[in-house]
Design a protein around this nucleic acid. Sequence first.
DNA 1: CGCTCTATTGATAAACCTCAAATACAGTGG
DNA 2: CCACTGTATTTGAGGTTTATCAATAGAGCG
Lengths: 232, 232
Amino acid sequence: MDTIPYKSVSLHKAVLFKGLTSQQYEDLLKRGLSKTLQSKTILFHQGDSAISCVIVNRGRLKLTKLNEQGKEVILRYIGIGELTAAIAVLKDRDYPVTAESIEETDVTVWDKPTMMQMMREYPDIAINLLGIILERIEDVQNRYLEVCTERVDQRIARSLLRLMRRAGLKVPDGIHINIPLSRQNIADYSGTTLYTVSRTLSAWEKKGWISSGRERIVVTDPHALVRFSETV
Amino acid sequence: MDTIPYKSVSLHKAVLFKGLTSQQYEDLLKRGLSKTLQSKTILFHQGDSAISCVIVNRGRLKLTKLNEQGKEVILRYIGIGELTAAIAVLKDRDYPVTAESIEETDVTVWDKPTMMQMMREYPDIAINLLGIILERIEDVQNRYLEVCTERVDQRIARSLLRLMRRAGLKVPDGIHINIPLSRQNIADYSGTTLYTVSRTLSAWEKKGWISSGRERIVVTDPHALVRFSETV
DNA sequence: CGCTCTATTGATAAACCTCAAATACAGTGG
DNA sequence: CCACTGTATTTGAGGTTTATCAATAGAGCG
């Protein structure tokens, strides 16, 4: 079981500090605070600093957002080597982004003053971070487009493919999405309900496109899913 | 008719160059390319540079995204003093963001090499841009949440309120949204169809919440709309 | 084995889209 | 000033999609 090479692990860590020497890199790591989070620990609801940066060294974070009625959407899963930046341009936000560990997770955190200092000292860090954030905005925009224009089953297909590319492990019968994913999680990630997800996955399981269990998804026919997701 | 003080005009221009002297600011402006766009001119479909920055000096841009079937969503309107940054991390994207002027528009454009140089020279520019982009990602995430969790009429209400805050002009009978907005535009901005928008606006017009005409919306009772948008 | 959490499935209802047709509006040229 | 034309808007009818509710089944754990 090795990670499929869709996306190299610890890519973003490299990207954030790209252009710096090893010595500088080591120094910057030391300025951050390392933490180990138990599973289901909330890392932040809302940073009280304008920018604070988190890199995941082990485990995985789930970024979510709640609306007034308590309905949740999953914005992203942050895996090993990836980072997330919390913002709080205004204080007392009502519906901020929440970062929660979904398994035991090691992170390195830089607070706002440290980040600001590092970015002023090494402009490349700000530029690198900008590149990462721009990729993120691209991702949200794509998902916004999807949720605005596509049927729910297409969106579920795209969601599985997206998760597969970012957290897929090769197993004998296909590609296992290495995140504990309940039907509710997939629904929150696709903008639908757990019932619709359940019905849809059942249908795909009958077709042999996936194989699933309790909080476990294996994509057995990725090409079929891709084709389906692009169906008119 | 003066701009309501929800958001100061030319705010972002100031933000991007915050921390620099007037002399430096003048110099940086000169490094950009100034253009005047006729109405309905496409400024970019896809930059072939990783980051290129555009500031609007007069007029307004519309940022849109198309899916495979040609369905369009409006990501944002970019008004005077605001900026947008085009990205093309990968080449040959199929569904990039499109920026189009919706009236005669003056812009200043910096290409990727220039932006990179400016950001390295003045780290504050990269940091400022980061702040702006983080606000943008916050905005898209909010709208993503809305489209995933709210009814279509609530989303239309929020869309009108959002546009009102960013492009509202006080008129005798309320606040005029100073953008030519067809029902189709509002639909593309809210993730619905022009028919649903038309029905919804008709209902609100009967209630006295808005007053509308061909490509023209005046919000006559903003509070009612706010209350409605927060209704369960 | 019993408890709890997750998943499945059917029935029903609500929300929303699609299509069609009619109407209103703005601009243009006679 | 008026008819004409092209676009925008309205509205109704009907159908599809998807959510909701309810009840049952299954999986994992002590």
